[in-house]
């Protein structure tokens, strides 16, 4: 394997890791506040659909008298993509609010609510997509302004001449979709919010001991709703990236393909901390990249089947959860509804 091939692998690692990272940070906010979130998958899927649908509609030219089946849109320029992302965030927030309503206000089972959200998104996206576009649940192919294309960072070509670091900058770090950089920036931002602000302190406290936070005069309900909403926003960006920033260029049914659960796995792998979350997502992104680039990996002694590579994130999570390599201890009040009067 030469250097160019390696960088190609890193490039796809970064692209694979982006939706994982955003969803993982979403889960981090939610679970740090004591709300289990296995509905990351559903929120991402809903966002991917809404983003692609709205972007396609906004970018399509306006037709005064469309014939049946023809799409008449707004004919917007680059704002179409922005509108798409906002729509994705909006759809994801709706799902998040449903989760919040069920698990915070009604004190229902958070796991069951998450399961329901996943199915709801899987069903409703195809249903609505079919009724809007009649394309078997897909959205129209996005092109031009309706999708994101790679951004060339400054000096990419100039610095490209430097050995190793130059091509790394030019081929891997530069030329990504803007949402990739958003995801990467979200990591230090999350760490800062969580560990250096009053909001972050309260958020973590509400996930460990909501009674104490309540006694201090801070509303547990409001803290948890804000966490769930932040999770909604992040999942929304993750979903928008999937349908608008990848080569899919549009929504395909079930396009999240279990990424919400890999993100959940990464969250546990990272023990609910932001910087390790980045590491875990990059690792799982790399595994995905290797799995799709190579079939069976021959390491001399024996051949590792590709299925093992695909299952590795899940196996690693199980191992981590079992505490064989460092124990993963979830926030103490996770999954427990808070009842004020007790």
């Amino acid at each position: 394997m030469d250097l160019a091939e390696l960088f190609q692998l890193f490039d796809s690692t970064l692209r694979n890791a982006t939706p994982l990272l955003l969803a993982c940070l979403a889960g981090l906010f939610s679970e740090r506040s004591g709300i289990f979130d296995i509905g990351l998958e559903g929120k991402m899927l809903a966002a991917a659909f809404a983003a692609a649908a709205v972007a396609a509609w906004a970018a399509a030219p306006y037709v005064a008298d469309p014939f049946p089946g023809q799409l008449s849109g707004l004919g917007l320029g680059w704002t179409a993509a922005i509108l798409g992302v906002l729509a994705g965030i909006f759809a994801s927030i709706l799902m998040a609010l449903l989760h919040g309503f069920a698990s915070i206000t009604l004190r229902g089972n958070q796991l069951i609510s998450g399961v329901a959200i996943n199915f709801l998104a899987a069903g409703a996206t195809v249903l609505i997509g079919e009724s809007l576009f009649s394309m078997g649940g897909q959205t129209p192919q996005l092109s031009g302004n309706a999708r994101f294309s790679g951004l060339d960072l400054p000096l990419a070509e100039t610095l490209g001449g430097i050995p190793i670091l130059g091509p790394l900058y030019r081929d891997v770090i530069s030329g990504q979709v803007i949402l990739v950089y958003v995801a990467l920036l979200a990591v230090p931002l999350t760490a800062w919010v969580l560990f250096n602000t009053r909001f972050g302190l309260r958020l973590r406290a509400v996930g460990e001991n909501p009674g104490a936070v309540d006694t201090a005069g801070v509303s547990v309900v409001r803290m948890r709703y804000s966490a769930v909403l932040i999770a909604g926003i992040l999942c929304g960006i993750a979903g928008a990236y999937l349908s608008m920033g990848t080569s899919a260029a549009g929504f395909v049914k079930d396009m999240t393909a279990g990424r919400g659960f890999i993100a959940l796995a990464a969250l546990i792998f990272a023990k609910w901390r932001p910087y390790p979350a980045l590491g875990a997502c990059l690792l799982f992104g790399l595994l995905e990249a290797i799995g799709s680039k190579y079939q069976n990996v021959d390491i001399g002694l024996f051949v590792i089947p590709v299925q093992f590579m695909q299952a590795l994130p899940y196996i690693l999570t199980v191992v981590i959860l079992a505490g064989f390599i460092g124990k993963a201890i979830p926030p103490k009040a996770g999954g427990v509804p808070y009842v004020k009067e007790r």
Binding site: L98, F101, A102, S103, L106, R107, G108, N109, Q110, I112, S113, V115, A116, I117, N118, F119, L120, A122, G123, A124, V126, L127, E130, S131, S134, G136, G137, K253
Partner: peptide, 28 residues
């Protein structure tokens, strides 16, 4: 054909939602 089989998935989700996590909406 306008109602694809994903309708069932949606109904399934709604049943899980209403009988599972939103149960207290009726119970309270």
């Amino acid at each position: 054909p306008a109602i694809p089989s994903q309708m069932i998935l949606t109904i399934q989700a709604l049943v899980i939602l209403f009988t599972g996590s939103l149960e207290n909406m009726v119970r309270f």
